[in-house]
Amino acid sequence: MTADIATRRSPLDGWTSRFTELAPAVRLAERPFLAQLTLRLTDTSRAAAVSRVLGVELPETPCTFSSGTGPHGPVEVAWLGPDEYLVLAQPGLQRTLESALREAIGDTHGAVVDVSAQRTTLTLSGPRARDLLAHGCAIDLHPSASPIGTCVQTLLAQAGIILLVRDADAGEFVVLVRASFATYLAAWLVDAGMEYREYREQPV
């Protein structure tokens, strides 16, 4: 099921040197191979059991995510729809989490699907990260409009993404993009960030 770790390549393998050119204005990096599971839960009576497995409450408000550390280490649960969530966990945990979540759901109406290979993860931070995203994303990412814990599914440079706001004030974001769109989006981000390469942090 899980590919051989020694031979598998992430969608953005080999992009690190181009990403580091954007520092220090934007620190861009791929976090490959995260365990990702789609959780469908129509029967909310099982939400508590699912929360216990993850160690994190399921986000109730649309367009938010919750994070924390549970029995399976650091976990993030993003709201994708009224009965749909995306669980993000450390690489290699997909099988364990899949069976644990299935057990929590029991025979009620719901589903758990391993979608780890569907998307790859990009982390953006730095003083110009928000400006860079604004080049191609219509969502207002100012802390007053998108506080910590915001999770939006939208388009970034016409590519479908899931955007998580980790730290609104410091400008720390996570972008989940489909594997087949990853190189396109990486090229776009590097190109859009070109103007910030001259950026130097102001002396205090």
């Binding site: 649309p62 009224p82 219509a138 939208t154």
Partner: peptide, 17 residues
Amino acid sequence: MQLIPCPWCGPREEVEF
């Protein structure tokens, strides 16, 4: 661009719909 208010996500750009 026209904004369409999704009942769940709030106002978003028309191209998303």
